[in-house]
Simulated assay, not measured.
Amino acid sequence: MFVRGIMSLRILLTLSSLILISVSLSAEEFAVATFTRGKVSFLSVSDSSKLWKTLKVNDILKPGDRIKTGNGSKVDFLYQETEIRIQPNTDFTLKEWNSDKKVAKAYVEKGAAWFRVSNFKKGSFEVSTPTTTAGVRGTAFGVFFEEKEKKGYTCVCEGLVNINGSDFAKGSGGALKMGATDLEKNDYKDLITKEGATIQFREKRKEIAMLSRCLPCHKPVGWEDTSFTPDETYGKK
């Protein structure tokens, strides 16, 4: 009985080690949830029950997984130095992820997501909406799809991003309405400083409603707006 108990203990320890190794490898290979707020649901591609579940910190984002956030909700994912921040009222799907080939593709059906990309080849990290596709040539950018407008937006925070075949630099962006053929080009330079969103930003927002999506990360300076929840994790990675 004693020998049998020892063998059972060894088997249990071996299985535990294999599970820990598997989790460790998965965490190194894919993006891991580092922060959640509010109601964040996900549909795992590997879950045969096809049931939506609550996403928690340390959950892993795998190819085929779909994420939905509610009002005031968000989730942050981190892979090495690459960040994915999914904002409130967003429907997001990770279409492809290959850490060996440094290739990733994601889809924002509605809502907003922000990305800071590292460890990927130029142009190999793509994020699409129903009307736009943004391929990274630089580092940080936001992708939005506004359902009421039926319009996809991309704004470039750092570096260079290719939007539907055209390159955009920091402080600029492109937008395309469903059914349209010409990409709308926008300039956001000097609207946001290190301190936050300026008075000029407030005025520009009247013209481009999508800019309100920037306020959780860039607080108003010299004016007020209580319609958003500040992103307490922005700039802390």
Rank of each mutant, 00 (worst) to 15 (best):
V3M: 10
V3N: 15
G5H: 14
S8W: 11
I11Y: 10
L12M: 13
L13M: 09
L15F: 10
L18G: 15
I19G: 07
V23N: 13
S24G: 03
S26K: 12
V32H: 00
A33N: 05
F35A: 10
T36S: 07
T36W: 01
R37L: 15
R37V: 08
V40Q: 05
S41A: 12
S41M: 15
L43F: 03
S44A: 13
S44N: 05
W52E: 14
K53M: 11
K53Y: 04
K53L: 10
V57L: 00
D59W: 05
I60S: 09
K62E: 08
P63N: 01
P63I: 01
D65K: 06
D65N: 09
G70D: 04
G72F: 02
G72W: 01
V75G: 10
D76I: 13
Q80E: 14
Q80L: 14
E81V: 07
T82G: 11
I86V: 15
N89R: 12
N89A: 06
F92T: 06
T93F: 04
E96Q: 06
E96N: 09
W97Y: 05
W97S: 01
N98S: 13
N98R: 05
D100R: 13
K101I: 08
K101L: 14
A106T: 05
A106C: 08
Y107T: 02
E109C: 06
E109N: 11
E109M: 10
K110D: 08
G111V: 00
A113V: 06
W114C: 03
S118G: 12
N119D: 15
N119W: 04
F120N: 07
K122N: 04
K122M: 09
S124V: 07
S124K: 09
E126V: 13
V127K: 04
V127S: 01
T133E: 09
T133N: 11
G135E: 08
G135P: 01
G138D: 07
F141Q: 06
V143N: 02
V143D: 02
E147N: 13
E149S: 09
E149F: 03
G152C: 07
Y153R: 05
T154I: 10
T154S: 13
C155T: 14
C157K: 14
G159Y: 00
L160A: 11
I163A: 03
S166N: 15
F168K: 08
A169F: 15
S172M: 12
A175P: 04
L176M: 12
K177N: 06
M178S: 12
T181P: 09
T181E: 14
T181L: 15
D182G: 02
L183M: 02
L183A: 04
E184G: 02
K189N: 12
L191W: 04
I192D: 06
I192S: 10
K194P: 02
G196C: 02
A197N: 03
T198C: 08
T198L: 06
R202Q: 15
K204R: 13
I208L: 10
I208P: 08
S212H: 13
R213C: 10
R213K: 12
P216K: 01
P216C: 06
C217Y: 09
H218Y: 05
V221Y: 02
G222A: 12
D225T: 05
D225H: 01
D225C: 07
T226C: 02
T226Q: 05
F228R: 12
T229K: 11
P230S: 03
P230D: 03
E232S: 07
Y234L: 07
G235A: 00
K236T: 08
K236D: 00
